[in-house]
């Protein structure tokens, strides 16, 4: 037993703990921002920043669900595929003449149902989350293409409100949705028993179970919520693109989401995580992509950069975890 107290190195500092915790990501974000701003006149223009914020809105919505899930020690590799399926289903429903509102609701319900299936596999059948969601991800990747018949399905001027609407004449609706989701997730993680139970389960599932915390129900809810938010991301995707098309969502979106959450400092083994970190991770990846774009660097480097940032963040998290 190594139940010996660890010294508190940070006692006495008056910096708020969340700032200290995310100082690394924040510093990298500022660094890249300053560098891009000095190299390109476009970066700090309102149009570009709006563009960036709209691009990352979908990632942020998915990442919020994943942060909650990973805090409880779970993982979901099917979020991108659920988003792809959702954006196809929403498009086909609209093409079939279903009004926007019901179409969106049905899509969201479908996403939640898929998430529940993931949850059932993980909790009742005790399949490792990685394998369970990899299986659904693969199956849904194919399903997404089948739904749209492998072609673009245009939705005309439907869902304009979500795709191009603005609040107060400047802020895109998609950004407002993403912000609302992230704030709600942060509140859930701090103030609800459900959110706190996720921390307890991720931190020590056995102790949580013995304390009477409903471990299975909480996990089912977490996967369901993840699926629901992924479907919302899919709706935002189709609204913004004006059409469902092959290649939207899917694996690339998934990896970006996982990367953002990990960069934000959420532990892969569960027990700790913050929405502030996740939002910073999403912002960082968005800014890096935009920066590579503006600096006219070969787009193939995008994935290289994504992988590199992820590796550095994971190593930094490991070193930090070892120290405490």
């Amino acid at each position: 037993m190594t139940a010996i107290s660890t010294p508190q190195r940070r006692a006495g500092l008056v910096v708020p703990p969340w700032f200290l915790r995310h100082a690394g990501v924040l510093a990298v974000l500022l660094l890249i921002g300053v560098f891009t701003a000095t190299s390109s006149d476009v970066f700090l223009t309102g149009a570009n920043l709006l563009n960036v914020s709209q691009q990352i809105a979908v990632v942020a919505v998915l990442a919020a669900g994943l942060t909650l899930l990973m805090t409880a020690g779970g993982i979901d590799f099917s979020l991108g595929a659920i988003a792809a399926v959702a954006h196809g289903v929403a498009a086909q429903l609209i093409v079939a003449g279903v009004p926007d509102g019901p179409a969106v609701l049905v899509t969201l319900a479908l996403g939640a149902a898929i998430g529940l299936v993931n949850g059932v596999m993980v909790t009742w059948f005790k399949v490792t989350p990685f394998v369970a969601t990899l299986a659904t991800s693969t199956a849904l990747g194919g399903a997404a293409l089948l739904i749209i018949g492998g072609q673009s399905v245009s939705i005309g001027d439907h869902l304009m409100m979500i795709g191009f609407g603005e609040v107060l004449g400047v802020i895109p609706v998609s950004v407002v949705i993403a912000a609302a989701v992230c704030v709600a997730a942060a509140l859930v993680m701090r103030w609800t028993a459900f959110g706190r139970n996720a921390f307890a389960i991720g931190g020590n599932e056995s102790a949580a179970r013995l304390s009477g915390i409903p471990v299975v129900r909480t996990k089912l809810l977490l996967y369901t919520l993840g699926g629901l938010l992924a479907a919302l991301g899919g709706v935002m995707l189709v609204a913004r693109l004006g059409a469902a098309s092959p290649g939207a969502g899917g694996l690339h979106l998934e990896l970006t989401v996982v990367a953002a959450v990990v960069i934000g400092g959420t532990a892969l083994h569960g027990g700790s995580g913050t929405m502030v970190g996740t939002v910073l991770g999403v912002l960082l990846l968005g800014v890096v992509a935009n920066s590579l774009n503006l600096l006219q660097i070969n787009p193939y480097y995008q994935d290289v950069a994504l992988g590199a940032v992820l590796a550095v963040a994971a190593i930094a998290n490991h070193l930090r975890g070892r120290r405490t």
Binding site: R196, F199, A200, G203, S211, G212, I213, S272
Partner: peptide, 20 residues
């Protein structure tokens, strides 16, 4: 292993059974 959630604070651990 089975009693406490080491990463959570003392006060929250004390509340876990009641919450459960």
């Amino acid at each position: 292993a089975h009693g406490l959630v080491p990463g959570l604070t003392v006060d929250e651990n004390l509340d876990l059974t009641r919450r459960g």
